[in-house]
């Protein structure tokens, strides 16, 4: 199951995780773009037109849930996966309420992530 150049936009401010995600997807022939925070989310999505968005919850400036709300409000329908280390039900509910398609806990298994992505991209 390879990416065939499908585009993924990743919002993540932790460099280690960003690097892990990027490597994993790039090597599976996805095109990846990294953003450090969600302040320019709408603009970035408009410019890059990704097939999928992955967002960390905690970021400076604008967090994943806010950015997700913004995107949906702007009519962006790209699937969004929220990535979080908070094992908190509240957060998950808010993420899904904001219009995310899936909520994934860190630490994450890249394989699982790919499995979640597959139906969203098809």
């Amino acid at each position: 199951m390879l990416g065939d150049g499908k585009k993924i936009l990743i919002f993540e401010d932790n460099p280690t995780i960003a690097l892990l995600l990027r490597t994993f997807f790039e090597r599976r022939r996805y095109a990846v773009k990294l953003c450090e925070d969600g302040t320019e989310a709408v603009k970035a999505v408009r410019e890059y037109a990704p097939n999928l968005i992955i967002m960390d919850v905690i970021m400076p400036g604008k967090d994943g849930i806010e950015a997700c709300t913004d995107l949906r409000r702007e009519g962006v329908r790209t699937p969004i996966i929220i990535l979080s280390s908070k094992a908190y039900e509240d957060d998950k509910q808010r993420g899904l309420a904001a219009g995310a398609n899936a909520y994934l806990l860190k630490p994450f298994d890249p394989k699982k992530l790919e499995e979640i992505i597959a139906p969203l991209l098809s």
Partner: peptide, 11 residues
């Protein structure tokens, strides 16, 4: 540093 954030086969 990588193991902290990973699960599954890579871990």
């Amino acid at each position: 540093d990588s193991m902290r954030h990973l699960e599954g086969p890579p871990f």
